[in-house]
Design a protein around this nucleic acid. Structure first.
Lengths: 185, 185
DNA sequence: ATATATTATAGGATAAGTCTTATATATGAT
DNA sequence: ATCATATATAAGACTTATCCTATAATATAT
């Protein structure tokens, strides 16, 4: 799955330790792929077992030793292969839609509260993403334009989707306020 | 998590067996919550253990006996409680965005192929959703308007998001064809 | 003084989900 | 005749991810 390949992707740029990777995930792909620290370490061991990465032990006096992972030729090949492979389409799980689907069990007031909660959450996410986009304008300059272009695309995608969600939620709230969900009762 | 509550939601409408539930999931919430048959049965046992559902054994001569699950008062309370509870916001995982993020490793030609693949997949999903929407127009009439309203909302959401994805992908493909990802190289 | 944060790795327990297979009967299609 | 499909339930093995905890030294803040 994708965590393996996300890690290979980062190792392709340069060798990194598990600790480094956690930090790198948190400042770059967290919005669409949050990685658990524990899971990163476990996955790194597996990558090394597979021969997709090699471990370099870096001794340190004051800190615990670092295990820096280098991507191998076969790891690099695997990354390229995966990047061109269509992903098995499995519908993502959206628990919010379960709440909406069964919202008929709630009172009109509770429903409105629910949607307004979803809306404010969505607005907050949008602000976060826009904030990142602003800062990234400078942040990304160290990378080749080609890489930076695709990094920005993933942010742009997040923003577009969140904007669309927000627009939809606002529309739905208006409809509910106009009692459109009660028509015909 | 949500499978528990999705099942409680359906049991709130009427008592169902595991087999029934699998069918119900597949024709209603599959687009945003695909449920594995095996997982449904496991979850049902757990719901019964929790006291949120009760089992009625229905003997049949020609077929294996059915275990029909009835929601209890405490199950119903739990459903309502959950519907009003804000969900812990955990960013969803979008493996496609990992592929896009690291697309810089591919050639221009491969990149275009990748995005066109994503676009056609997206177009296909949209058609599927629109097809369901058309059919549901009649399908849903048996339910109270209030419930049907929220069922349709979840479909509408899927369509809006897929439309937004598609529009974005088309735009990105144009930009790539114009060589915008190579600017400054 | 004490608590928290940073750097660094990793195991244990648990949860959640997927895939496969087993069992059993009936019906319809090729 | 045989094969697939529908009805009905459920265990086994495995994967992936999450949460918590442990270890260990240093540094900074209260």
């Amino acid at each position: 799955m994708s965590l393996d390949h996300a890690i290979l992707g980062f190792l392709q740029y340069k060798p990194l330790s598990g600790y480094d990777l956690k930090a790198v995930f948190d400042i770059s792909v967290k919005h669409f792929w949050a990685a658990d620290q524990s899971q990163i370490y476990r996955t790194l061991s597996r990558l090394a077992e597979c021969g997709w990465a090699e471990i370099e032990r870096v001794e340190q006096d004051d800190r615990p030793d670092r295990k820096v992972y280098h991507i191998t030729k076969s790891g690099s090949d695997e990354l390229i292969r995966w990047l061109m492979t269509p992903l098995p389409k499995k519908s993502e799980r959206i628990p919010e839609l379960i709440q909406i689907f069964f919202a008929g069990n709630l009172s009109d007031e509770e429903i409105l509260t629910m949607f307004e909660r979803l809306e404010s959450h969505c607005r907050h996410s949008l602000e976060e993403l826009q904030q990142i986009q602003k800062m990234k304008g400078g942040n990304v300059e160290s990378a080749p334009r080609r890489d930076a272009f695709f990094w920005m695309l993933t942010l742009e995608y997040g923003i577009r989707m969140t904007e669309a969600s927000l627009a939809w939620l606002e529309e739905v709230i208006t409809r509910i306020k106009n009692g459109r969900h009660r028509v015909g009762e």
